[in-house]
């Protein structure tokens, strides 16, 4: 007969929860960042850093390129090789960088206005060439840095500085545009669904070819204030949680229920020759002549 003391099974030692240590990836002394209270960009940056940590790529092998805008301040805070360039031209610089140093993992952080309006041409041609880089579009539906003008992703009827009575222009769907232009990995995430976003960014980083991730986040200062969202929390719940449906859920829903909602998750993936490799093949073929 066993004594009561022997009946007690030792508790399985649970692994202690340790928060992610961001300090190796963030430039010391650069924080606090310039983003407004409640801005989703900080959440996206944290997801990006966690995804980069999972990839186990050395910090020296990562290059982050950006244009101008709120989202494009990201490279200033991270401790990689970084390049802060002209408005809309981040992809042009990134193309040059990747061609000169094909071993670098190039990440472009850009906003909806930077990528789709001012750099729209660079965006479609970068997708067409299928250069191995990750394009992260921080899509907050407005030009935040220059006080809230309509961007190509401002929904119809929503108010902005340049659309005081409601925006009448139809919007760009970043993911459809990227897919049509030839990107080989297209995905969407939101700052609200941070675990999904981290996974999607990781997959985008691992993909060989142009990968585009459209990240829906909130601009409480301009978009929120103009459109009567009272708090950043309300914005996250109404736009990011209620306004999107994951690809898996979408199969079970009726077309009427999907009306006006954006799909999240990996939307398109294909395999096509990568530009740097094709270029190298051409160089070797021409030199052999």
């Amino acid at each position: 007969m066993s004594t009561p003391a022997e009946d007690v099974k030792p508790l399985a030692k649970k692994k202690k929860k340790v928060p992610f240590n961001y300090s190796p990836y963030v430039r010391g002394g650069k924080l606090p960042h310039i983003w407004c209270p409640g801005c989703g960009h900080g959440i996206v940056l944290k997801c990006l850093l966690r995804a980069l940590h999972t990839t186990e790529i050395s910090k020296d092998d990562i290059a982050m390129v950006s244009g101008i805008g709120c989202s494009s301040r990201t490279p200033g805070y991270v401790d990689f090789n970084t390049l802060h360039t002209l408005h809309g031209r981040a992809l042009a610089y990134a193309t040059g960088l990747k061609m000169a140093k094909p071993k670098l993992k190039v990440i472009v952080t850009t906003g909806d206005g930077d990528a789709l309006a001012i750099g729209g041409n660079h965006f479609i041609h970068a997708c067409r060439r299928n250069l191995d880089m990750t394009i992260l579009v921080y899509n907050n539906s407005i030009y935040g840095m220059t006080s809230g003008q309509s961007s190509p992703t401002t929904p119809q009827g929503k108010i902005s500085t340049t659309g005081r009575y409601g925006n009448i222009e139809p919007t760009f769907d970043t993911c459809s545009l990227a897919q049509a232009a030839g990107a080989t990995f297209v995905a969407r995430g939101t700052a609200y669904h941070f675990q999904e976003l981290e996974k999607v960014i990781f997959e985008a980083m691992m993909h060989k070819g142009t990968s585009v991730v459209d990240v829906i986040d909130a601009c409480p200062t301009y978009y929120g204030r103009f459109n009567k969202y009272k708090t950043p929390t309300e914005m996250m719940e109404k736009i990011e949680k209620e306004g999107t449906v994951s690809v898996k859920q979408a199969d079970k829903l009726l077309p009427e229920e999907l009306q006006g909602k954006l799909l999240r998750g990996v939307l398109y993936k294909s395999d096509r020759p990568e530009y740097c490799e094709e270029y190298n093949k051409l160089v070797i073929a021409v030199q052999a002549k």
Binding site: K17, V18, P19, F20, H33, W35, G42, I43, K46, Q195
Partner: peptide
């Protein structure tokens, strides 16, 4: 309960939960 939601939803790197 250590769910870390505050950490993950904080845009400012300001809050962390340790066990």
């Amino acid at each position: 309960n250590g769910c870390q939601l505050c950490d993950n939803r904080c845009p400012d790197f300001a809050i962390q939960v340790f066990e």
